[in-house]
Amino acid sequence: MGSDWKVILCYSITVLYRLWWIPIRAWRLPLKNGERYFQDIEVPEGWHTSAEGRKWWRRYRATIIVPHALEACGLMAIALWGQWKQLPMLSLVAPVFVGMTLAFIAWWRHANRARIQRPQRVAVSLEERKLRTYFSWSLEAALAMLIAASWAIMAWRGDADIHWRWPLTLTYVVIGLIVMKAQVVKHGWALPANRTAEYQHWDEFRRRYASRVLDRMRFMNIVILAGYAAVHSLAGVAPIGAIRGAAFAAGLGLSVWMMIGIARGETAFLRGSARSLLPPATTIIDWKKGWWSFGAFMAGLALLMFWPER
């Protein structure tokens, strides 16, 4: 198996996370606000066991089963042919899963738009949301320098084995994550006029949690980029084995840190949703902007990953 154990270890961590997340949380996620709601929208009593309710539950669960079934097929093929190096390709299931979940939510909201009860009186905070509250400019400058240095050493001393697709894709993802974070921290919505402070506390929690997760994803991609650049550019100058080991340990540590962050954030989210606050979908959400930017990002990513190499 050689160095395949590293890929298998990284993959196993994502499997462990999902084994915790899917049966315990995701399977019943539309009930996070209690039995009176399905995915943020109030439903009549007995709806969950009605024909309509069962139909929507089947659709929701298909968004979980289909991508993971595809992943299981991919995993079996990899195991059968012993191509463990191809395991990272299974991560493509993540955007499929996210895309299907978002499509399901949009479909559900569109089909049940008449049921969405928006509060008649709403309140918005008059405190300015500034990027500098959520971004540390010195850290951003250091990260930008690390990316620039990675590109510079690859351009200057890169070996013949560099597949430019990977550094390009990683840099694209890093830039995309910065844009997403800026959108997340700038975005807000009208909150119900009663218990506004509680809703705002919750909204701010969501903003900080999302920006933390996006940061950790970004750090992980930057470390992988820097590691890739070092491995392919510093042969003969530095001990490649040590660089490879350090980059792997840093990437693995960051991915575990990211998953712990997601697990803690999601748990807190679910705990908060169980309180008697209205689900966020009852407030005004501008989905269009998010859809366009997410769609454009995914299209760019697909182009970079599947563009045939010469």
């Binding site: 918005v124 009208a190 501008d286």
Partner: peptide, 19 residues
């Protein structure tokens, strides 16, 4: 509540939040 010198958020922020 809003004193002299207090800043109000941008037009974009208020409009975005209110939809």
């Amino acid at each position: 509540t809003l004193r002299e010198g207090a800043t109000l958020p941008s037009v974009r922020q208020v409009a975005g939040d209110l939809g």
